[in-house]
Design a protein around this nucleic acid. Sequence first.
DNA 1: GGAGGGGTACTCGGATAAGAGCTGTCCGAGTATCAATGG
DNA 2: CCATTGATACTCGGACAGCTCTTATCCGAGTACCCCTCC
Lengths: 161, 161
Amino acid sequence: MDDMKLSGGVEWAIHCCVVLSRMDGAVPAGKLAGLHDVSSSYLAKQMQALSRGGLVRSLQGHAGGYVLTRPADQISILDVVQAVEGKQPLFVCTEIRQRGPLGTPPEKCLTHCPIAIAMMTAETAWRDSLNKITIGDLAHQVSSTSGPETFQTIQHWFAGA
Amino acid sequence: MDDMKLSGGVEWAIHCCVVLSRMDGAVPAGKLAGLHDVSSSYLAKQMQALSRGGLVRSLQGHAGGYVLTRPADQISILDVVQAVEGKQPLFVCTEIRQRGPLGTPPEKCLTHCPIAIAMMTAETAWRDSLNKITIGDLAHQVSSTSGPETFQTIQHWFAGA
DNA sequence: GGAGGGGTACTCGGATAAGAGCTGTCCGAGTATCAATGG
DNA sequence: CCATTGATACTCGGACAGCTCTTATCCGAGTACCCCTCC
């Protein structure tokens, strides 16, 4: 009742994608976890979800890690959210209007339930908004607010640690 | 991963509000549950949430039940969703940019995290969309699609059962 | 016949258990690197 | 000196527990109605 409805892993995944977009070469999940000081094993789970969703490509072996499959300008936040959380909508209509003693028979349900339509419309607005922002946009904003040297510092830290 | 992120009770609560808006007098939770063929005890919990949120007023005693506190045109779907699900946002920024060895110090975080801003913007779009539809609108649409006699039939059923 | 009082039945409200999903963790499968060896 | 081959160390990937939250349920507190009694 008092915590967010989206997985906490969503935030981690987005941050990782932003970092990845400005790195040269692959970055293993362990280093991404160390950078953000989060559980290495659990972040690995999120990266697997991103891999399954086709957003990142995994390179195994000695100098392996994760790399974005597409340019950062072609990856929206919605893509990341859907990869981690699944494509299931926030609201699912269970057609309770068809249930109960006075339930509307299925043959009379020609149009969708008005409630479902309203919820779906709102959800579409949410998705459209998320779809307008790309990982590239976020990386640019991070550079502007936290300083242009931010990503370079991170890359050096990756090489060191 | 494969079910909705919003409580299932949201759908029940909205349907109940729509029905309530066209009824004369109070309707007990038990009859609302019977009408929709759902768990009486669990729907009672949702109605309590609506009561706590100030959307409905509870009348105890022999001919008691629930009544809307405001005209249906002044109750938006957002009001119902927030009453049942809480006002906590879908996405909560945990400020992981401040964590880890390269974390940005708090004194340099003058502006909000770009990721949090993007998520909040999308969420605002979602809320705005939900805020535009009222229970009155939904009741009107139900009358149009399911027939004008729908609510009258329900009222008769309430009186009978 | 009318008013008052008590009983009753019905209502909500919160406190109480079971189930599912998110959070967090572990170890096995696979591969590029590196070094050693032989030509 | 260069190619081959094997060992190595590092990576991802999926399978395995702990815990919070949703789902579902029950019983007690409170109130309006109804009937019986008394005036």
